[in-house]
Design a binder for these strands. Sequence first.
DNA 1: CAAATAGGGTCAAATTCTGGCACCTTTAAT
DNA 2: ATTAAAGGTGCCAGAATTTGACCCTATTTG
Lengths: 239, 239
Amino acid sequence: MNVRLRQDAIVRSLRRSGTSTIAQLAAEVGASRRTMLRDISALRDQGFVIHAEPGRGGGLQLDPQSVQTTARLAVTEVFALLISVASMRAAGNLPFLDLADSGLAKIEKALPSDKIRDLRRFLNCLYVGQLAPQVDISNLGTMDPALLPAFETAFLRCLHLRFQYRDAKGTQSSRYVEPQAMLILPPLWYLVAWDPAREDFRHFRMDRISEPDYVEGATFRRRNVVFQDGVRPIKQSPR
Amino acid sequence: MNVRLRQDAIVRSLRRSGTSTIAQLAAEVGASRRTMLRDISALRDQGFVIHAEPGRGGGLQLDPQSVQTTARLAVTEVFALLISVASMRAAGNLPFLDLADSGLAKIEKALPSDKIRDLRRFLNCLYVGQLAPQVDISNLGTMDPALLPAFETAFLRCLHLRFQYRDAKGTQSSRYVEPQAMLILPPLWYLVAWDPAREDFRHFRMDRISEPDYVEGATFRRRNVVFQDGVRPIKQSPR
DNA sequence: CAAATAGGGTCAAATTCTGGCACCTTTAAT
DNA sequence: ATTAAAGGTGCCAGAATTTGACCCTATTTG
């Protein structure tokens, strides 16, 4: 058995049984007592808090607070999680959101600091409101998975964005715009952008955008976007 | 040099230099070409996105989007994130959910397998529908943070649940029920439970529940809950 | 005190990791 | 078309690490 798997098994066993002895654990995972001691030591090095009582009736116990898991995440994935939770918070009062937030805070804290800055700046472009009842949401399209990376770069570096847009009538057109904000009217998402050709703001439904691509070198200035009533920025959760 | 340290060094080097070849990396960390290839393969297994170009002028490149972060999360926090994203997916077609999902999948993968099983079983108790328009959502209460751990245990081990409930008129009462399902009618959450005293199902708004506590030893049998039209289980995302 | 428990040191055996090599595929330059 | 530079895979013997056995000590309970 692999070292990693065995140590996971030890943690699981300790979690299940509450308390057990080195000998019991050794028998359970099929290793020697000595190896158990080494594994316990290694787990402690990894940050697990394991209480030990010597003497009769003694044994090992995993600190219940330290049930934890370590994962490696890509920044885009963290972005996506943050956006999910933030828009959820904006949409209404849902349970367990504080827990989700504290989990996210830990993830965020583990990011390199420049990435945290980017992330905050990106979140600042998000706005939330209520969906107008007359909008037809019966046939939602699927979102292009390339949206997030392209949008992230375009927003952060203030670069023009090029994409294909399919309007309500189904007509395809090619667009070239300055992305200014993202507007969430649950369950719809819109890109709010300045269209330099038409010299006006336009709203684009995200599920109708495809083949997004930022244009290297083509920077622009932020404009003051005026939203209708009831639309507010996604507040960053207090951290 | 330790395997873990060496692999970390590779990632750091790739981040620094942008692109480099197997041979360069090998020289840098003082290992052979073969070991480098094995390490790269291992890093990919760990979720790092490493682009490779064969042929002259080729080399390795760390996907700039995949700056990785490692974080330690408590299991309840993972639960909360999963529930958030799952209920979001159920509520509508939102962007970036697949990315959020892939992030969650990595987190989930890092959990001990018994916890994954628990987590899936818990998610199976979640149902989603549309909120009836006549419900007054003007004064939502706040969710008791103790809900998740207590509910988790009660659902997983089929234990009776005791809690304080404040009904629509503001009257407090003490309840003792069999938790059968959780129903989400965004933005409201309900506990669907069998009340043995009244011999009937009852819905409890989650934001009106406080001081939840499961009753050790008091197990019950799952009942067949019949939901009204439009309510469906939260599908587990395909993993 | 005796028994049960955690914790550690040492060393040979068992296991895993590493490096070298042969060979394959892709790409670009000549 | 040929050649060189790059990534990728399978295999094997030797290097390195991990494991188990045996030794010990310290602490707690009956």
